[in-house]
Design a binder for these strands. Structure first.
Lengths: 303, 303
DNA sequence: TAAATCGCATAATACAATGTTATAAATTTG
DNA sequence: CAAATTTATAACATTGTATTATGCGATTTA
């Protein structure tokens, strides 16, 4: 069997340069090398190919028919090579890559989109997958390494998953114009008798909330049970009642028919930021996680 | 501006080899080089790219997300490089290329297609353009170097066109079963009184034919005037008359309702095989011309 | 036509890329 | 933990890619 010696890219570059410039001298200048260097690249390539590359005609180097046959392929190779180095450069500049994020449905519609939009602003090469689902599913995905980053809550821990917990402040939300706006801080007593919209009774957040009301000897007037803070906010906007939600969601609705005030005693909304332990994260992923964590800072309960 | 240092193909080959084989050692074996050599190619590439290429995991080299992003492009580059060297090899083996042929309409439908089919049989990489037209147009095309090879007649010569003239035997064609079949050679006298189908009265071939009849003191009973020998043959098949045509065309119709016998005195059908003088022909073109010329041998008047 | 000019090819040579073997370091496996 | 396997590093040979100097052939110019 004959040796499959592929030509070198440099030779192909020289070839295309001559085709485009019409002379070896001009091609050499174009490539930024000396004329003999180009001359030799061509001589070598011609020898390896086994046929004439150019026909001299009235001072012009005219590509032979054989070369013309190969020209499209050669052009594509050079383009691809250029693209590869370009993309690799973008990657190191954290400007390209793909990040797969799994999150709770609430996040997919409130805080996360804003942050993602900001992040992608000056990273045109970066793409993302955002997949909202239940916490158990998110855990599975992390273990299976199908996602790079997860935002969940009520997380119990797993050896294959790195976690970082943050505690977001909770606030009391009420319709614009409600007399609660006169208070600077809202306590359970202030909500006595009011219709309260809250998360699922099994949720950790609701358990904490009801305990606080219990400790304050105030009856929790449960009106509507929702799955997400955003749904609660929507309902509050519609005047159905008041609620205690994560400040992250509250700020999104402020100015859209809803006001909020701090809620005391402190009721932390615990979020876990998770990552597959074994999977080495890409540079963009790390950068995004850092970016996202920073975006949460203003809403965190000081440790 | 940053340096546009494209990676080297060898590095990309090593990268793909590791991806495909799961280990550097196996990749090195695959590439037919030592393990340290492969190791270094990867180290260099990683340094040039500026990011981790692989993550070790339970003995397996798992490509990083960044690499996966580049992988399709890299694969295409390597495929194209392989293809380029393959095609170049085919070219030197005269197994690839493109040939543009201009010919008289008669040739496009009779002798040429058979030869072309044979020629292309074991040259899958070769493609052809066959353009039939009038002799003047063929001359133009040769001068303009828009075609590689031409088959024409009544050619007057031109400095920019190489010619090679051949003289094909002419034969008398008549319908199967005609009593002319009893003769082994046909002369003008045998055709006295018969309807004769012939080419245009201005054509060189007709002029020769009528001169022969004149010299033999036989009246040429002109019945139908056609432009091509093939048309004459068709008419003969239909019993409209007899004709004197190039043997090339006669053999195509033999067994399709028509027989033929040599015609005497000798009436050469002069064909010119032409080529642009200045244009350097490709290797396949030269080979085809030789192939075609050889195919005419059995029909030529011995010189 | 001789000389000058232009463009390409070749020669001698420097340095970087790419391969080799030998060997150390790290990791997986029994 | 030791043995085996795999990867990384070091020292060095070979080849590829550039350099400058120079020769050769074709077209231009005097």
């Amino acid at each position: 069997m004959a040796k499959h010696k592929t030509p070198r890219v440099r030779q192909l570059e020289a070839l295309m340069a001559v085709i485009n410039n019409g002379s070896v001298t001009a091609a050499a200048a174009d490539l930024g090398i000396s004329q003999p260097a180009a001359s030799r690249l061509l001589a070598d390539l011609g020898k390896e190919f086994g046929f004439q590359l150019f026909n001299k005609r009235e001072g012009q180097m005219v590509p032979s028919q054989e070369v013309r046959l190969l020209q499209p392929d050669i052009q594509r190779v050079l383009e691809l090579m250029r693209q590869i180095s370009e993309v690799s450069r973008d990657i190191t500049n954290r400007k390209a890559g793909h990040i797969r994020i799994a999150c709770l449905p609430g996040f997919a519609t409130s805080h996360l989109p804003d942050i993602v939009a900001d992040f992608l602003q000056d990273r045109p090469g970066v793409s993302m997958t955002i997949e909202p689902d239940r916490p158990e599913r998110i855990l599975e995905w992390m273990i299976g390494e199908q996602f790079d980053f997860g935002i969940t809550d009520g997380f119990v821990g797993h050896p294959a998953v790195d976690r970082q917990d943050v505690q977001v402040r909770s606030v009391c939300v009420f319709p614009d114009g409600n007399e609660l706006a006169e208070k600077s801080v809202i306590s359970p007593a202030d909500l006595a008798g009011r219709s309260i919209i809250h998360t699922r009774k099994e949720s950790d957040f609701y358990l904490q909330l009801s305990r606080i009301f219990q400790d304050a000897h105030v009856a929790l007037n449960s009106r509507i049970e929702v799955r997400q803070f955003t749904a609660a906010c929507e309902l509050v906007c519609n005047g159905v009642g008041v609620s205690v939600v994560s400040e992250l969601d509250a700020v999104k609705y402020a100015g859209r028919g809803l006001s909020f005030r701090p809620f005391a005693p402190s009721l932390p909304h615990a979020i876990s930021l998770v990552r597959p332990t074994l999977k080495k994260p890409s540079l963009v992923t790390l950068e995004f996680i850092e970016y996202f964590t920073k975006s949460l800072q203003p809403y965190l309960i000081a440790p």
